[in-house]
Design a protein around this nucleic acid. Sequence first.
RNA 1: GGGCGGUUAGCUCAGUUGGUAGAGCACCGGCUUUACACGCCGGCUGUCAGGGGUUCGAGUCCCUUACCGCCCACCA
Length: 860
Amino acid sequence: MPVPEKPALEGLEDSLAARWERDGTYRFDRTKSRQQIYSIDTPPPTVSGSLHVGHVFSYTHTDFIARFQRMRGKEVFYPMGWDDNGLPTERRVQNFFGVRCDPSLPYVPNLTPPDKPDKPISVSRPNFIELCTKLTIEDEKAFEQLWRYLGLSVDWSMTYATIGRDAQLVSQKMFLRLLAKKLAYQVEAPTLWDVDFKTAVAQAELEDREQPGAYHKIHFYREPGAGNREPIAIETTRPELIPACVALVAHPDDERYKHLFDTHVITPLFGVRVPVRAHALADPEKGSGIAMICTFGDTTDVTWWRELKLPVRAIVQANGALGPVTWGQPGWESADPARAQAAYDQLAGLSSKKAQAKIVELLRESGDLQGEPKPITHNVKFYEKGDRPLEIVTSRQWFIKTIDYRDEFIKRGQEISWHPPYMQARFDNWVNGLNGDWCISRQRFFGVPFPVWYPILANGTIDYANVIVPPEERLPLDPSTDVPDGYSADQRGKPGGFVGDPDIMDTWATSSISPQLVSGWERDPDLFKRTFPLDLRPQAHDIIRTWLFSSVVRAHFENESVPWTNAAISGWVLDPDRKKMSKSKGNVVTPLALLKEHGSDGVRYWAARGGPGVDTAFDPGQMKIGRKLAMKVLNVSKFVLAGDQPEGKVTEALDRGMLQNLAVVVDEATAELENYEYAKALAKIESFFWDFCDNYVEAAKSRRYGDFGPEAAASASTAMRLALSVLLRLLAPYLAFATEEVWSWTNSGSIHRARWPARDELISVSGTDASAARAVQHVTEALNAIRKGKTDQKVSVGTPVKEVVYRAAEDAIACLKLVERDLKAASRSETLILRAGEPGVEVTLKPPSAEATGGKPAEG
RNA sequence: GGGCGGUUAGCUCAGUUGGUAGAGCACCGGCUUUACACGCCGGCUGUCAGGGGUUCGAGUCCCUUACCGCCCACCA
């Protein structure tokens, strides 16, 4: 392809993306050995949302590394996944199709949801999943287009979906392996619970939100005959949980309450006899210093309940409302059951919030509320996607063991190279701060089901202790539709029959197996051998505690290995208020519009300036600069490559010095990129590139035009072409489009499969004499001084002048003698005098000629 | 309360093992210069967050304070 007359960036994204696809430029060659392969565990973006500028930022970082490794000669394994699993998709499907999932229904083949049903229709879980797939497939196409336009060098023949068949297979198989090793277990226990989604949630999915609340001072009483009848004042923010109170607790050293320890007190309204206990977690400074333990108000209650071995009196149901209670029954003993019942009946069926208002009335009437509630704001735990505070509900859930293995996880963390290194501390902090095993079951529908069933005993109760496990060959399966071996379908739900586990796996339980999923674990042993453990996990820092941690757990238990050897943690994109861009309102920029406006190379350049782990400001100004850089690449390339330039030996000092300096840049940039410091590498490359354009090319230009004969010209053009070739390759990971465009003018293959530059290809041409390298630096200084001399006299730097006298240190002058011809030509002076001495420059203009004076009127 | 990161020119950020403060943008001025006006040249701009210490010498090392961001713990 010839050098174009007017090179342009417009349209390169579409035309080159199409060419890369046609030529299979990024196609993974799976015949290469593990040594030759560089494998990436790409994060699958959530397709139910939309891609934002933060995604563009971090995915581009991965692409820099992928392109660098590919040019270094590695065969890059770079798949892309779609996270179409989980609650966001489920909610969208419900609204879009007007359906609800009912796992008890059988699968209906070829189900089409009606247009606009009046009320949601119920469908089976497999049908629901089909609809999810149908909806997300469109999103995935749009995402792929954006990634192609941005220039991600992904092998698009290797995509996966987190709800896909393989993802289910791997998730279920790895779960059964954990079960067999007793690393997964189920237990009925208090669990953090979202009352709207009606599902358990994990520690990692919590967030705190500031909420208004109030301290209520309420009265408990000592048992008759156990001392004075003065009420004991307890401060609580959740008076509605008084009926669930199982004890009071104070600090063991608290003198105010020591006399009450191991005595009993009576709860207000309900007359329940509860013990007073001592526990170090009770804070004497807080409230009245003595607290109510309820089953369960918060996680501290759970701790106390467990450690003090207290009974359960649970009142909050799965839907968040207070459930029915018959007072006087075992577990609900009361000194006055009729009174307790009368009070409780006014609370039953109400949500926590409404029950609280009601019980305040009741307490006021009975005189057990001291003063008025004192409003406060406090942090309350929420499910990160939820709308109401979490409750703690006792339910049967699946767990993966983690707390007993914390030390092993920390050791795995040490086997991973973290980029930047300090991110490892976040991992260590999280692991050391774990306070319970990992709850992986969710009471939702759109996700990977637990592939197990339970027998139903003759009396109709479910025998959870004897889990029915399928052979691995049957996976993936859905226990709500599939039937366990040895049973028939009509035995489902019947005494003597079976029932499927109704739950699905937590989103992190399924996404944590992405290393095994992409590498073909247990499905493609050949691929697995060549890619696992992977070389790189790129991801953002906010999900170290979730995705990164859970992936380490799974690989540790299944593969006895780390899942990958490098973790590259990218920062966030911040808006001008220093808030995370994707979270604050009204600042989300459509990525495609951004790419169209500034060009993909412009946006890639901006992304490249945010180093690993560094939160970076959204800055269109940087994108403009990137676009200018890309444009400059096109233009200087046009100059260097256009026309028939003579080839020959590189003999001139200026040329050899420039190539030597470039060799240093190659070494430095390579070292930075090997260390995942793509931003630092770019800064060095870019700085050299501009110096090359503004100083070297300017100084060598006259000679290359042939002003000093063909051999001198050949030296210049040969050196320039070599330098350009190296610079293009150094810039290729960043400016994927502009560099490919230029490369195509003189090469047939893709620059992205070209060899990464090495110092040898430069040094073998330039030699290594230090004076030549220094001469280039001195030429730049001299040129700058001479240009300043001209600018001071208000003439263009291209103006021919009569005489230039340049003075500098003796060794600088000695170097400049080597390149005197070039300097004289670039300064456009009839006479150039180089002199050792105090640094300085004198530029003598030509006397104004008759035509010049006549043609240009003097300033007024 | 614990941990991690940050605070350098109006803005965005570099500053490797301590050795006279840098780049780009913005701003101002000059320049049709045969690759490029998406260009070229020049100029202006700093108590390196505050305080203390080590040192001949600190943006850089140590201590400390403040502020910003994130993570965790606590939230009766």
